[in-house]
């Protein structure tokens, strides 16, 4: 097990390097001039040339990458062009919002999703089943930002139940986490149902049932453990989706997280911030996949290789 973990962790390093190259290279081809943005609408050409010089934008690319990488390794993440604050500080202040929202959404998706899937599977071919599956089809088909707007419209403005903006308390999480989780929830429900249906058809479950165990006991004690392996995969994959979804949901609910930081920094060509914030999101996705692999190995020893 330790060896397996070590191998997985080592495989992580080239992935990180690859990500840093991608992030660095992609940004080199972005059009638009950060110096012009900092200068603002009324800046002169001299002002802009001066700003460009200050930012080191005139140096050759490999030099800029080497600098980028060296600073990355030493956690010296540079200063934002736009706010003049350390990037590390900006990221660390926004990271908790994005991550806690992703976890809240994940928790909602996992609990409601597996629950719906379990109900559907154990009542196969009933109206419940059909309803759950229809709802899950709807869940993966609805645009998340549109759902977010509708939630704000009905639950915040019309009913006044939940606040619309920010994440400053438990109530603030309800709507954005719900809007963010719908896709994953629906997907987890489908996966749970399919996986449970398959497991319930397997020989050892049949024999457990033949031994006279009750339906619920069979479902909960025997089937769930095996059925959850694919569900965990989906949950892991969902995590990446949830972090990506934060880009849009944070805009709708005015949440000061990494997702909005990425969009803002792309729009203002704030290179250091784009680089690091995208990298942080990508590393988190990769880390989630790693955790999934480990869970896998724990649940099913055959998968350790």
């Amino acid at each position: 097990m330790a060896l397996f973990l070590l191998r997985r962790l080592l495989a992580f390093i080239p992935l990180l390097l690859g990500m840093s190259v991608v992030v660095f290279l992609i940004l080199q081809i972005l059009p638009g001039d950060p110096a012009a943005i900092i200068g603002g609408q009324f800046a002169t050409q001299e002002d802009i040339a001066e700003i460009r010089e200050d930012l080191g934008l005139n140096r050759p690319l490999p030099v800029q990458y080497a600098t980028f990488l060296r600073k990355l390794v030493t956690f010296d993440l540079g200063t934002s062009y736009a706010t003049r604050r350390p990037v590390a500080e900006m990221i660390s202040r926004r990271y908790p919002a994005t991550i806690s929202l992703a976890f809240a959404a994940m928790a909602i998706a996992l609990t409601l999703g597996t629950l719906a899937g379990m109900i559907a599977a154990s009542t196969r071919n009933s109206a419940w089943d059909l309803l759950t599956m229809l709802a899950s089809q709807a869940g993966i088909s609805i645009p998340g930002f549109w759902l977010g707007l509708l939630l704000i419209y009905y639950f915040s403005v019309q009913l006044g139940w939940f606040p619309t903006s920010g994440l400053s308390g438990p109530r603030y999480y309800v709507l954005p986490a719900l809007a963010l989780s719908v896709f994953s929830m629906a997907f987890i429900a489908r996966m749970t149902r399919a996986s449970l249906v398959e497991t319930l058809g397997l020989d050892y479950i049949r024999s457990a049932r033949a031994k006279g165990l009750t339906h619920n006991r069979v479902v909960f004690k025997h089937a769930l453990r095996n059925a959850f392996i694919p569900v965990i995969t989906i949950a892991g994959l969902s995590f990446g989706y949830l972090l990506g979804g934060s880009v849009v949901i944070e805009a709708v609910f005015n949440i000061n997280g990494l997702g909005r930081l990425v969009v803002d920094s792309i729009l203002s060509r704030d290179y250091p911030v784009i680089q690091v914030s995208i990298l942080v999101l990508a590393v988190n996705v990769a880390a989630a996949n790693l955790v999934v692999d480990v869970c896998y190995a724990l649940l099913d020893p055959r998968l350790r290789y």
């Binding site: 704000i152 915040s156 403005v157 606040p163 619309t164 903006s165 005015n254």
Partner: peptide, 10 residues
């Protein structure tokens, strides 16, 4: 969202 947060009193 700005309008909504005004309408909810935030």
């Amino acid at each position: 969202t700005r309008l909504a947060s005004y309408m909810t009193g935030e």
